[in-house]
Design a binder for these strands. Sequence first.
DNA 1: TATTGTTATACTCTATAACTATA
DNA 2: TATAGTTATAGAGTATAACAATA
Lengths: 162, 162
Amino acid sequence: MKNATATSLPSRDAPVSDATLRVFVGYHMKRAFNVIQADLSRTLAPFDLRMLTYTALVLIVDNPGLRQSQLAAAMDMERPNLVVLLDELEARALITRDRVPTDRRAYALRATLAGTQLCKQAVSAVTSHEERLLDGIDKDARAALIATLRRIETGHAKEESA
Amino acid sequence: MKNATATSLPSRDAPVSDATLRVFVGYHMKRAFNVIQADLSRTLAPFDLRMLTYTALVLIVDNPGLRQSQLAAAMDMERPNLVVLLDELEARALITRDRVPTDRRAYALRATLAGTQLCKQAVSAVTSHEERLLDGIDKDARAALIATLRRIETGHAKEESA
DNA sequence: TATTGTTATACTCTATAACTATA
DNA sequence: TATAGTTATAGAGTATAACAATA
């Protein structure tokens, strides 16, 4: 909390002090995520995908037969919000919702051929765009970043292992 | 992209493979941010603050006389969205909007005594909550995390300096 | 009773265009 | 004409309650 010279108004181009926020991880996390998210949106636009539809598609391709509740859990979102998202992918014939014979309440999610192909292209585009966005951040720092993020995600952070 | 055994449906509790996403930084960034954001919301609730109102308040306390457009730039958001946010802080008498004599279009933002005090308490709460959330992640890893996040935020990533 | 997917709904955050009053 | 703040509006993303079909 800077004891700023409260008498003088900052000029129009005065830099804003973020002294207090500089140690606030959430602040940096949000800003960094915004940058990545913006790049991701541009990258996925040609495929008519957003981060959420992309993530869902990748998870379905990687886990054929997945149920909606499992996907919702994997994506850390509520079941209702997944419905419209899957409606969109299904309407575009990228995935199918197949009735599960052994449990007629559930749907098994599968990617169509078109979905699998689109996914492959999108993954490739995202990978190379992210590669470019993270240029200058070396392998070690990148691995450390992901490792730390995963520890935060997964509840903790309090575990010993990297 | 795992070549999963497409024949067998995953059982209800089967773990979902995120093989493809595991290397996708945006995915981890989002999930880690969600965890931090959830903790932050709980932490700020007693103060009747959210991440955005908290961030604005801190920046105003640290930069008395700040103008709305500067604050919007500092918070990486559009000017219109700041208005309601500041309305809220002003209605609670945590900040004031003072006319700038030299430019009667602009407002100089200042925290009131109440705003400054609330800010101080909130910062303290956030700091200790974050400390607890990031337990187990040692000083070096935490510093590395923030350093890497800042490089991503600030455009790049392509710069050499830490 | 509990669970799967669904509908409806509401709230937050975000983005854009257009207005006003000043410069 | 350009800028500061504002209004109105629309779009995402997210969260909850309640329902039908099924277990």
